[in-house]
Simulated scan of single mutants.
Amino acid sequence: MIHGIGTDICDIRRLRATFERRGERFAERVLGERELAVWRARRARAEVRGVAYLATRFSAKEAFSKAIGLGMRMPMSWRACEILNHPSGQPYIRLDGALAQWFQARGLRAHVTVTDETDYAASFVVVERDGPAVSEPFPNPGA
Rank of each mutant, 00 (worst) to 15 (best):
I2L: 15
I2C: 07
G4A: 10
I5G: 01
G6V: 11
G6P: 02
G6Q: 02
G6L: 08
T7M: 04
D11T: 04
I12S: 06
R13C: 12
L15C: 01
R16W: 04
T18Q: 13
E20K: 13
R21L: 09
G23N: 02
G23C: 03
R25M: 03
R25Y: 04
E28I: 04
R29S: 11
R29P: 03
V30T: 11
V30R: 07
L31T: 06
G32S: 13
E33P: 06
E35T: 10
A37D: 12
V38P: 00
A41N: 09
R43T: 03
A44E: 12
R45C: 02
R45K: 13
E47Y: 13
V48D: 14
G50C: 06
Y53E: 08
Y53S: 11
L54H: 09
R57P: 04
F58Q: 01
S59C: 15
A60W: 14
A63I: 07
A63W: 06
A63T: 08
F64Q: 02
F64S: 05
S65Y: 09
S65W: 07
A67N: 03
A67W: 07
I68N: 09
G69T: 03
L70I: 00
M74N: 04
P75W: 02
P75N: 06
P75Y: 05
W78S: 13
C81P: 01
N85S: 15
N85D: 07
H86K: 15
Q90A: 15
P91A: 04
P91G: 06
I93C: 08
R94G: 03
D96F: 14
D96S: 15
G97V: 07
A98N: 13
L99T: 06
L99S: 04
Q101D: 14
W102N: 07
W102L: 08
F103V: 09
F103T: 10
F103P: 12
Q104T: 15
Q104M: 02
R106A: 08
R106K: 05
G107K: 03
L108V: 01
L108E: 01
H111G: 10
V112Y: 05
V112D: 07
T113H: 09
T118S: 11
T118E: 13
T118D: 07
T118C: 08
D119E: 14
S123Q: 00
S123N: 00
F124S: 13
V125M: 02
V126T: 12
V127T: 10
V127R: 07
E128P: 06
E128H: 09
R129S: 12
R129I: 03
D130H: 12
G131M: 05
A133L: 14
V134N: 01
S135Y: 06
P137M: 02
P139M: 00
N140S: 02
P141K: 00
G142C: 00
A143H: 02
